[in-house]
Design a protein around this nucleic acid. Structure first.
Lengths: 340, 340
DNA sequence: CTGAAAGCGCTAACAA
DNA sequence: TTGTTAGCGCTTTCAG
């Protein structure tokens, strides 16, 4: 753990000079001197302490990303794009999953600000709550004051630069597609009521219906929570209320997966009996066809235990390494070989 | 952006005293004084600068996680567990996707060390390369010297505490399951050759075959890359080489999805004609049945552009907010309503 | 129990 | 072109 001083000493220059060449400053340094510093740094395997640097430059080269759930393929994919772009510019990113909980989200934002992230990326739809919004606005104000930025990747009432998918337009497109196929009774598996994205996608749906002169029946809307289980549950509700629906449109793909599952359980053929539409086109949407027999690895627990292990060590304890059992989960994709 | 000094001044105490109450130190402070400090801190909305604190305590309360790809559901799920556990202990986590590239992985590790993460979590299977291994070992040594830790969540030749799934046992279980169903010609869609996990899962398969007295035919192994496309490609290769396989066992679920896709394209029924097995049980494995008509949101680009936007601002530019188009992707899940 | 002073590792004036 | 000095915001001896 060599410091600039060590490098400076070895290169027989001052710390300032060493810093000038090592920090990538444009400050002029004689080539010979530069080489000596570089050599010394290599020799000592010098790695600048980014914290110290950040303390003086007031720039950390870090980004904070608030996602609703990094395990949701939608956010995972966003996080990957974020990370790659950040890396290309020498930035590291902190990922934070809020589960759409206002308290947790604010706590994360405060923490990220304490770590002096240079920018914040709010990837999920805004939470509709006055107190939350006010506090968030206040925190982001502090960020901006010190030259930082917050950007939104989903509809938020909070102001700031954004990159948004055309949620309303997309929903309208899909609804038009369903209408064109001849559907008139379309059940809507919506997003959570307190998330702004839900309202925006719903608005697109309603607009397309209005345009076609089909009137909107509120009982054809069942709010979900953007999870598979939520989608299945909403589908069940809708089917109970309206056995005559011919199509179900889910506000995100993950819920659509739940819808498909629910339909299969009821032996309702897709699309012969009921059509199903999703939103997002997450990678898996295109690629699966039969429930898979597989080996279950407890991934969540693996991550959890991994952190516990690390933290245990940091706390001075010596927790032991472990092996977690795996097991076969039998589903529809396996059976006896075809007799010949 | 109040500092301890501001709080100290307002509370009419020294910075030392303010720090003692604000940093959660166990150092004795008179209750009345403590209250005054707390009041002042609340008043000024004091948030300690974690960088400054870290500089003196030599503890950042951050974890670095190296995943192969955060967009791969396997790693996303792990990352979530990691994050939740870390948060419970007041830690933030940096997520880094290496795409199983040795150079990138080392670069990330170096960067994370420069940020003085307290611990490193290597979630993916180790890369089989001597130079890589030596350098990694060296870097981790430095981490340990300053009291840090590195933990592994997958087979690695690098030593250190670990939490591992039973890869070999799981593969053996699945192979036994297939053998019990009567399969003898089992094609194996393996993992990348340079990743240790691949070898370990393969070993489990071979062990189960040996146990049953079935001998292993190397031409029944096609290495993939843990992606959907890789799985499809490997399946095609296997089918060409061995049209008589009755089962395909993929080294991870994501490749199994690709295998299923390939089989469907060839109208090979699952499991009637060929059984398919995966590994991991990622959430989607259980829930999808028909390819989904959906609205495509360019998620990757969204994340990418979001970071660009943030970085543009940090660079003093004022890039404009944008709206990315969405479109309908028509797949099998939609069609005309059933005529009555 | 409280305060003064030093210092974590680095960069940025300011001099030379 | 190089060096000296100060200081980022915090915690921590060391005195009192």
């Amino acid at each position: 753990v060599a410091s600039v001083y060590d490098v400076a000493k070895l290169a027989e220059v001052s710390a300032a000079t060493a810093s000038r060449v090592l920090s990538g400053s444009t400050y002029p340094v004689r080539e010979a001197t530069r080489q000596r510093v570089l050599r010394a740094a290599a020799e000592l395997d010098f790695q600048p302490n980014r914290l110290a640097r950040a303390l003086v430059t007031a720039r950390t080269n870090t980004l904070g990303a608030i996602v609703h759930d990094i395990a949701d393929p939608y956010f995972a994919e966003i996080a990957r794009g974020l990370e790659d772009a950040a890396r290309a510019d020498g930035y590291q990113v902190f990922v934070c999953s809020s589960d759409r909980d206002a308290e947790r989200e604010l706590a994360y934002v405060r923490s990220l600000l304490a770590y002096r992230v240079d920018a914040l990326v709010l990837t999920g739809g805004g939470i509709e709550d006055r107190a939350y919004r006010a506090e968030l606005e206040r925190l982001l104000g502090g960020l901006r004051e010190r030259g930082g930025q917050a950007v939104m990747l989903a509809p938020q009432r909070v102001r700031g630069p954004s990159v948004l998918p055309d949620n309303q337009g997309g929903a309208a497109l899909m609804t038009r597609h369903l209408l064109a196929l001849g559907h008139r009774r379309i059940g809507l598996v919506g997003g959570p009521r307190h998330i702004r994205t839900s309202a925006v996608r719903l608005a697109g749906h309603r607009a397309a219906l209005a345009e076609a002169g089909v009137d909107f029946d509120a009982s054809l809307l069942a709010p979900g929570d953007f999870t598979v289980a939520g989608g299945a549950h909403a589908a069940a509700e809708l089917l109970a209320r309206h056995p005559d629906v011919t199509a179900l449109f889910a506000a995100n793909d993950v819920m659509a997966f739940g819808v498909l599952g629910e339909l299969r359980e009821r032996s309702i053929a897709v699309p012969a009996d009921v059509s199903v539409a999703g939103f997002d086109d997450v990678a898996m949407a295109a690629h699966v066809s039969v429930p898979l027999t597989t080996v279950r690895v407890p991934m969540y627990r693996l991550g959890w235990e991994g952190a516990k292990l690390a933290l245990g060590y940091l706390a001075g304890r010596r927790p032991r390494s472990r092996v977690l059992a795996t097991e076969v989960v039998e589903r529809a994709s396996t059976g006896p070989p075809r007799p010949r």
